[in-house]
Amino acid sequence: MLTLEALRYQTGDFSIGADFTLPQGRRVAIVGPSGAGKSTLLDLVAGFLAPVSGRVLWQGQDITAAPPNKRPVAMLFQENNLFPHLDLLRNLGLALRPDGGRLRQAERDAIETALARVGLDGMSGRKPGALSGGQQSRAALARVLLQARPVIALDEPFAALGPALKSEMLALVRDVAQELGALVLLVSHDPGDALGFAQETVLVAEGAAQPPMDTQHLFADPPDALRAYLGR
């Protein structure tokens, strides 16, 4: 259970607040107009930003002060999810050995298995530049599998992919999340992503992240802020 407790972040004129709980194993979309603070919310959860006040809790444990790698969160960024000069084996190996040390045979096997799981069997020797955009996304997802964290945070990582490829990737994310029993937080500016992927949706608008609502209900009868964003 991920709890955002009276969480408040502020920088300059910009501020955002959140106060709700997300249950384990759900798929949650975070939608809202650009600049409202969707990515900021994700950064607060993942530990890249520190809140002005409030707490972030995981299973009742306070993780507000924990650095990103000590949190139960695996994150996919908009870009730069892989180091371009390292092959996939080394890229994924860093998830297991953050000191960059030599990988043991068991770790190599785990990487190969994860790559095979996302449809990249036998590609561990390739560098990201030798992969297509979709394959790069798959490789990054394989790392999320390896990290096996109970929260997966996605900051529009498939925005550059075409519609077919994107829904393919979201399906893969769903499978991976189900295997791990993980809570998924998906930031997206595309309402279609939320409808097709997420059971619940958090609307971020006007300086606050609303508590999650059932996605179908929310879009069937959108509140004013969402209505304005959707242009309806």
Partner: peptide, 25 residues
Amino acid sequence: HDYARLSQALGLTPLAWLRLVLLPR
């Protein structure tokens, strides 16, 4: 700018950051 967040998310040690990311890049 490009890789600090990823490195941070992975918890790379400073030496690994220097050896595997900064110097090669």
